[in-house]
């Protein structure tokens, strides 16, 4: 099958599987307003916390309020995209433990695609909306030099940020192949590492910086885009770093999934 044809088929199948999830949720979970509100609440209360702190200090390590809000918002925005379009990553544990992954393996469709398209989290809408609002606010309130190129790159950075977030989610959730029980908190722990990336990582120790920039590269979701957009960088090529990180994360996630799947297939359930 040619690359073009298989890409089209992949997108087509993703669209079909995703709309199935959407129909299901519209049928059953009529309370998704609660989810959206809780996401909005969480993000806003986080920013209230920032505001309370910045009420007493002018900056943290040279970073002003709106610059940090931008980083916060990038973390939440990408989480929103992950929840809305790729919630399936968080359901991998359930699939593995209940043997429902078997049903997916019986179909002539890539298991990764089926896993990614397996869920929808309406709370994502809340995160995406507030996230974009906050990013918009931050970009206007901070004094920076705009150009057409910068705008294009900004959009690119948002896309790569989402790709990195989803890859990390998937990679973390493949732990389900090794940790076989319902209370697996490993993915949540990895998710919590994103907490560090809400702030300029330069305030942390070298160890943490390496953790969040190399091992679990959340820094490329928020910090490096901020670094570039707010003209804090010495190198004009810094904007290339997040796309490279996205490819790296995607590859690692794919590899971990395949290895985990092989283990699943040899041990059954």
């Amino acid at each position: 099958m040619s690359i073009l044809r298989s890409t089209r088929r992949t997108l087509f199948l993703y669209r079909r599987l995703f709309s199935t999830q959407l129909k299901a949720i519209l049928e059953y979970q009529t309370d998704f307003f609660i989810m959206i509100i809780s996401a909005v609440l969480t993000q806003l209360l986080g920013i209230v916390f920032l505001w309370v702190v910045y009420n007493r200090i002018p900056d943290i390590n040279g970073w002003t309020f709106w610059e940090v809000v931008f980083m916060y918002a990038m973390i939440y925005l990408t989480e929103g995209f992950g929840s809305l379009f790729f919630e399936g990553t968080w359901r991998l544990g359930g699939l593995v433990n209940r043997g429902e992954l078997d049903v997916m393996l019986l179909r002539p469709v890539s298991p990764i695609l089926q896993v990614l398209a397996n869920g929808i989290g309406m709370n994502g809408i809340g995160n995406i909306v507030i996230g974009f609002i906050m990013i918009g606010q931050a970009l206007t309130k901070v004094d920076l030099h705009w150009s057409f190129g910068k705008l294009v790159i900004a959009i690119l950075l948002i896309i790569t940020a989402v790709a990195i977030r989803v890859s990390i989610n998937l990679a973390a959730n493949t732990s389900a192949f090794w940790i076989k029980n319902a209370g697996n908190a490993f993915p949540i722990m990895i998710h919590n590492l994103g907490e560090f990336a809400k702030y300029p990582i330069t305030i942390f120790s070298m160890g943490i910086q390496l953790l969040v920039a190399v091992l679990v590269p959340f820094a490329f979701v928020s910090f490096f885009p901020a670094y570039y957009l707010f003209d804090k960088s010495t190198s004009p090529w810094i904007w290339l770093a997040p796309p490279v990180a996205a490819i790296y994360c995607g590859a690692v996630a794919y590899l971990l999934f395949r290895i985990g799947l092989r283990k699943y297939e040899s041990a059954g359930n």
């Binding site: 199935t20 129909k23 299901a24 949720i25 049928e27 059953y28 429902e100 078997d102 049903v103």
Partner: peptide
């Protein structure tokens, strides 16, 4: 067809 498990999508 696996007797105890279904391949049908549950909520559609």
């Amino acid at each position: 067809v696996f007797g105890q498990r279904t391949q049908l999508w549950w909520d559609i």
